[in-house]
Design a protein around this nucleic acid. Structure first.
Lengths: 204, 204
DNA sequence: CGCATTAATTGACCACCGGTCAGTTTTATA
DNA sequence: TATAAAACTGACCGGTGGTCAATTAATGCG
């Protein structure tokens, strides 16, 4: 069979990633195969190699969409100048997202490009956009001129939240304690520490 | 070829896991195959299925050894009643371990057992032993009777440290900031928060 | 000692994988 | 309408996890 023109290249791209998302949600990374994706959208596996260089590239694009979806889930939190409340709401949404899209979220960290290949720039743009949400919420805790410290703390909290969800997901938390309780403590104690450091005129 | 008795079942178990560790360090999870492990130790791949039920089980045992090695790397930190200093030393060793054994450490969280299979009890024992190290270091910050809160904070810090290293490893930190700086801030701010909470008579 | 039993080991086999590419078919262009 | 270009397929390659009948070596026993 030759050119079908049932779909444009862009439509094929969309169809493939949608199918891949479903497969990952159902069977995880190890269940994601080029052949399954192709079969799901009614094309032969060879065709997918016209759209993506290889499975790695498909996954990188899939991960990009996951970062987009995560951003959409977090972007509109109400935030009235109370960092603690803002962080709580942000983390609630984050945790909820990781639970609703476990396998897709895991894929963000499970997949490693082969040696020598780098993630595209737009991937980092998407991450910066997410970190920005946390930075905005933290703003009231940092005076003008302390943007670096603010960014720094945003990354600490972001990483910590990631760590809690990651250990939960890989069953390495080994506790009857909930992700919610750990997250709550993280935020309460960390913000307490930040406020206190500010009072003393120190910033980390 | 029939029974060789070159090695006992236990020796085979050791040989296989040692070989698997080398392979993972060199080629990551995706490079770890039953055939490579078998080839490395001079047996056919079929023989490995006498020792491990399948590749998943081999990986679970490999992960057990990684947890042991991590414990050995952390157990003897000097700790003179200063939680902040203790946590710093603990995290230094931890970060160092994750760097020296990247792929093996990643395997702890990358590998997921198929639906319906659970990690063995001894896996959780090994994790509890690690968390215990953090709990001990935190002891001076919690009065008797507050062991639950201490355990809780140990888990928060442990997860947070994991998150920082995990994001670094998967190139999702997206910052020129170092793991060391983030870890340092985490500990300083969190301990500051804990001390302050204690002063106010609150515990999270 | 020799023979039967038992256990360990192998390698052919299965269905599947990622990836390649010559060849076919359909569309666009001139 | 003829030609060129692009899209699509499926056979093919070397590899995978896993199974299992057949083979062979160690062991127990008479």
């Amino acid at each position: 069979m030759g050119r079908r023109s049932d779909h444009t290249r862009e439509e094929l791209y969309e169809l493939a990633l949608e199918a891949a998302e479903k497969i990952v949600e159902a069977d995880g990374l190890s269940g994601l195969t080029v052949r399954k994706v192709a079969g799901e959208i009614g094309y032969s596996h060879g065709t997918l190699y016209n759209v993506f260089a290889d499975l790695d590239e498909l996954i990188v694009h899939l991960n990009g969409r996951t970062l987009d979806a995560l951003y959409e889930a977090l972007r509109d939190i109400s935030f009235d100048g109370d960092p603690e409340a803002g962080l709580m709401r942000l983390s609630e949404r984050y945790v909820d997202f990781t639970r609703r899209h476990q396998a897709r979220w895991n894929l963000l960290f499970e997949h490693h490009l082969p040696e020598g290949r780098e993630l595209p720039d737009w991937h980092y743009v998407k991450i910066f956009r997410l970190l920005n949400l946390a930075e905005n919420v933290l703003a009231p805790l940092f005076p003008v001129g302390r943007e670096r410290e603010r960014m720094h703390s945003a990354r600490v909290l972001w990483s910590a939240l990631h760590g809690i969800c990651s250990l939960e997901s890989s069953r390495n938390l080994a506790a009857e304690e909930s992700v919610e309780a750990l997250t709550r403590t993280l935020i309460l104690v960390y913000v307490e520490g930040l406020v206190n450091a500010a009072r003393k005129g120190r910033y980390e």
